[in-house]
Write a protein that binds this DNA or RNA. Structure first.
Lengths: 204, 204, 204, 204
DNA sequence: ACTTAACCGAGACGGTACGTCGTGTCTTAAG
DNA sequence: CTTAAGACACGACGTACCGTCTCGGTTAAGT
């Protein structure tokens, strides 16, 4: 995680940073983003408010960094860093597998609350939104781009398809269902999305 | 528009309601949703705060009602009420046409600011989110469901496809790109989505 | 007490005003002026901070008004409103009597703490200082002016003496001793001051 | 100036001490005592906050020491150290002369701001007040005591008069007028005070 | 001449209070 | 009898300083 804020961070307290991360994640999970306040983070973290304002420009940036730390930490524990979508030779199976894992993660409340909050904040604050997309979302999407390119080389996906658009056919529906509660999110659903996307809606 | 709140609405001032709608939409468009406050709406509307609190439970509900009024009013001016997606016999063309119109609307700042704000608020307030989806989004999606059903009867879409899921293949990517700024939104883009969705990514 | 602050006070809460007065006086007496804070006044008064900021420009002005109320209230209980220094025909005796009463009041902690605090604040904030002098001190001094004028007419004080300066000969030493702890304050002391002032230091 | 604090002062930086004195006096003169802060002194003095906290217990003590240095330095330049009130044989003339000089000094802004600030702080912090009186005020008053004693021996002042009280008849009024702005401070005024005090208010 | 311990500038830290803003409720005066 | 205006209690904001606490880096005493 790179420091994005003002002072030179040589003397920065690592203890304080970690405590703030943990307090922020805990509060968002327990009380919700709306009821999470800077003062509410500072108090249980045993930290002065100024220590937060010194290093982060907003509540959302605190949460973004805390969440990135959390994600990175879990990835490291799962020993899948750097991660790539597996290539068994069967694109459909590989995509279904990784989307099922994504579904599982979206249903884990520890991940759901912060990412939903960050998404919401990003909708209204464009600058933050771009940071959220660039750090959280786009790296994941690039995994799909790479897997689809491999599938194109293997002849399983048409060569004239743009992978960056193609991946949206199954990723975006899942994202919208989850974010906006427009429908149930399940393994069966993502399996269906992959089938529809790969083979189309029109009869052959 | 149906009254959603407690008091008997017989004596309700129509003048105040309109003024509140207009002030809310203007503020959200000019200052952004974050800087829009109940007091900030009441003042230019020439209305006491209590008049807002009496009829709406939250800032978001004010905006939702104001935006629904705006949408309804525009639809009435365009004389396309009740609206259906045209059926020229060519599904692909029909879908592309309606999606191009949607793109145009998404790029109109009078619509963009409030709907983005309502979407954001809905992510974090689930109850509001369900109201937003039910009143703003789902009616539009049902238009696609009906058009896809017709296409199924015409043999242009496989009969075993679930239209409610199928529509997400082109609607959700557009929604995500627009909401999260994950990519450019254009007529070419939605055309591509329709092509990919109808004919699939895999070679025939 | 005349309202000196911004809003039109017709809707002002008398309950809040009294509670603020009492809390301010109590805090200054118990904790001292330095440890008295606006928040510290608001809390026990059961009042929002804004209610204080709405009506008073500073902590010192709150205390000034509270203290004026206290003084006025005590004067009304003692039924000596409007007050004049008695005229028994013996200036020396009359001055000694009223100064002894002043000494007693200066030693009463309920009066001592606030007036010392207001004096201190007035030294550093000239505008406040002038208000403190005009409302608390000068009215008292005018009593001496009138009594000395009467003494001049009775031939007990030289006609060419300026009463406004003359009164300072016994009032200012007492004030300084009390304020700056430059010496003990007692009935004997003020008696001596009156004797010295009336008859001078030089031998006759 | 005696070190009043804990550490061994052998290694103390004289450069830092002087810079702190000057910054403190400058800030109090320019911005006022209220807006003078420890951090505000440390920065222009090119000094760490800790260097101030190491050697002084409070902002007021810094100012007291700085002001004592200033006074001492000026006295040394005027070559009147140690100072005594002149004795020309005419008490009235001698007292008027020294009071006129005092008036001039009170009107010099370089002296006025810090001494007013120290007086104010002393009113509220009794311990500091006693230090201020003992180091700044009482030495001056003792000069009057000695001159009055001489006058008593010369038969110009009654022998039964207490000089420590007598001096207050002309010193305290001047002090109060200056500190509390209760009236104009001028040579004419102090001349009058001396005349009234020496010869009394009552007709002979 | 060489440690070595204290002071030094700098500034992050946990705190407290500031004065402001907005919330949602309650009160008042005027139409 | 309703409604605009706005005072109220409350809670959070973001800022300013407080007084304490590291951090290297001089710097002067005592070996």
């Amino acid at each position: 995680m790179v420091d994005t804020s003002a002072p030179e961070a040589t003397r920065r307290s690592e203890r304080a940073r970690r405590a703030i991360h943990e307090a922020a994640l805990a509060l968002v999970a327990e009380a919700g983003y709306r009821k999470t306040t800077i003062e509410g983070i500072a108090a249980p973290a045993g930290v002065g408010k100024q220590t937060i304002y010194r290093w982060w420009p907003s509540k959302a940036e605190v949460l973004l960094e805390a969440f990135l730390d959390l994600v990175e930490q879990h990835a490291r524990q799962a020993r899948n860093v750097p991660y790539e979508i597996p290539d068994t030779g069967d694109v459909a199976a590989d995509l279904k597998a990784v989307l099922r894992a994504t579904v599982d993660q979206l249903l884990d409340p520890r991940f759901a609350a912060p990412s939903r909050a960050l998404a919401a904040e990003g909708l209204v604050d464009e600058q933050l939104g771009r940071r959220v997309v660039a750090t959280l979302l786009e790296p994941q999407l690039q995994l799909y781009v790479r897997r689809l390119r491999a599938a194109q080389q293997a002849g399983q996906v048409r060569a004239d398809v743009d992978p960056r658009i193609a991946l949206e056919l199954f990723v975006s529906p899942l994202a919208q269902r989850w974010l906006q509660h427009t429908g149930p999110v399940s393994h069966a659903y993502t399996d269906t999305l992959v089938d529809y996307a790969l083979h189309g809606l029109a009869p052959r």
